[in-house]
Nucleic acid binder design. Structure first.
Lengths: 210, 210, 210, 210
DNA sequence: AATGAATGAGTATTCATTCAT
DNA sequence: GATGAATGAATACTCATTCAT
């Protein structure tokens, strides 16, 4: 086999893997975790059942990978927000806007929740997921601390505020399911208000956004 | 059959029904919805499988009843908060405190979420659940409006703020699962800060609470 | 539950277990090990598939139990032969006759062979089966030694002769399959000749048998 | 295509065929018939799965060919023994010695046994295998008759004795599997004793062998 | 009413075979 | 010819539901 083929093989493997994960995410988003069958995933991925098993050992492994990948990608996403050459409020605005627009956000949220709590999930995986969650809170805390130093965000332990804000986002996400938009769509401004100092300190350019 | 027996029968039936629902809630809380089997529920309830079917037609019906009962009880709970002879902040404090202390709050949250989203759930039930959710938001909105008039809570559409606050609570609940208390337990004060006007208007007696 | 029910339950369990094992043995005898499906076993046992799983965890466990039970019963059988109040040749005659008449002897032989050799079988089970086989050789060796002392059987290490005789029996069994009786049915006399001293020492009554 | 290429092609084809058969035999010897997969055979043969199908239509055909080839080679082997310019006992000694030393003898034995008995095997093949087996018994019977005429082997129908001796060999083989040598290795002398007249008529040079 | 053994449709997974490259 | 990814029918096993006792 030529080196070119090795490369092609890796590419194929990566493509199939991604295909399966995407399909799984979509189906879960549509049918929910309990109702998701391997045939659904395979059909959504446009592959045969047997072929899916070439790339994943089991249904559980797909879920596990989905959770890990989701958390890893989330980490990159938060870090991207933190690295933006913007003032703190704007950074968080960007993060919030993106997160609310992500259409599989709630599927990830559901799965993380399941991974952290179900007895069906092996203990080590649970721990790993929780650890990664806490770890992913840190960049967010840094962002908030930055905002506090700038006098834009309310006082308090930044890590705790990060947890509060992420919880708020997750809570919103769970009420903001495609096709079931309850009452009113939440906008970044509305969510962000809860962290703002209440004295009108919102940067002028920020409030102009909506 | 004597009237006394009829009464006794009804009582027994109600007791069994409650037994099954409690058991189901506990097991779901422990194992998650997908992994919960009828035998688990029966065992937890201390009944035989066959006997469970005397009181519920199907597993789905148990879930449905659980959801409906949960929403109904939640409604009573919010109304109780609203009816307390206390100032608005104190009312919401009481609500928050109780809700955070409830140990099956997250199981209810999960189930509601599942009921609203899974394709496995029949459309009418979904609609009903969503409708009831929105309906249950109203007393909360009233409570917030009351606080706004008192100058304690931030301005804005009270229904929207109610949704935000409930989302926050649900988000917190999902990170506050028995045995997986992440980072720090959220206290009512911490959650409530997000609704407060910045200017130290928190009633003195309220802040003394913790 | 009354004590009577406990007894009944045990009886039921034992009956079903025996039913499944018998069925499995028959199907294996008919279709061979590789082609034996759980549905076949269930059908043969007159039970539903699900019900079979009430009594056995897996297909493998059925085979394992079959092997163990087979070896245990074989042990009792050899000991019964040894304990007969008969002269040595007659004892071995009885053993041979019975063994040749047993209609699932070859199924047991096949399974033992598979259990001892296939990589698919876990090492500990293999060892156990081999150990039990060697152990079961001992009564047979005692029987042969007895015959040697009586001057009926040829000289030599009795354990070795036991292994030779058992191998002969197994070899014959594998050619003596229901419906495929090759060439000629082997009779006890014919097999036993191979162990006899040449000089007409066969007991008169023994040779009259056929 | 030049004649040379045609020859080369046939050679390649024969080599591949032999490669596959050898591989199949080895894997079956190691894993047992039920657990042997096409991928195992291909891997052992150092070929791709698809390529194996260039030479054999199906897994079943491989087994069938294996059985037929095994029987054919066995036939040559017995005839070779019969044709040796040696006295009868020595001929059988040579046969026994060779057969016991053959390291895939038991795999062949297992497969023959499977071919004769499994319902999965088509009836015609079964018949053919049995017929060939009986046919292969004939040279062996001739060899034994020769020994009887020479006064070395015990009296009796030579075909029957041939069946007994072959059964003994197969029985021994099944207890003499690589790595599972039970109790003691059987030597040709030990096996042959069972056919000998018991009056010490063993040729002096034969008994010197071990 | 209570029990839990029995049922069988439904699902995850495997593996012989095909086929595009 | 050679490859191994792709296919999907076949099979082990699960679990909601029923029903005889």
């Amino acid at each position: 086999m030529s080196p070119r083929n090795v490369v092609k093989d890796r590419k194929l493997r990566e493509e199939r893997t991604r295909q399966v994960l995407d399909a799984a995410m979509h189906v879960i988003a549509r049918r929910g975790l309990p109702a998701t069958k391997m045939t659904d995933i395979a059909a959504e991925a446009g592959l045969s059942v047997g072929n899916v098993y070439k790339y994943f050992e089991s249904k559980d492994q797909i879920f596990q990978t989905l959770v890990e990948t989701g958390q890893r990608e989330y980490r990159l996403f938060v870090e991207e927000a933190l690295a933006k050459p913007l003032p703190p409020y704007e950074k968080l605005y960007w993060y919030t806007e993106q997160w609310l627009a992500l259409d599989n956000a709630w599927a990830i949220t559901i799965m993380l929740q399941h991974a952290r709590t179900s007895e069906a999930v092996p203990e080590p995986l649970k721990k790993a997921v929780s650890a990664r969650f806490e770890d992913n809170l840190r960049p967010m805390a840094a962002l908030i601390a930055e905002g506090q130093r700038a006098g834009v965000f309310i006082d308090g332990d930044s890590l705790e505020l990060a947890l509060l804000y992420v919880s708020l986002m997750e809570g919103i996400i769970l009420h903001d399911i495609p096709g079931i938009r309850e009452i009113t769509a939440i906008t970044p401004e509305k969510a962000l208000r809860l962290l703002l100092k209440k004295d009108g300190s919102v940067p002028a350019d920020a409030s102009k956004r909506d």
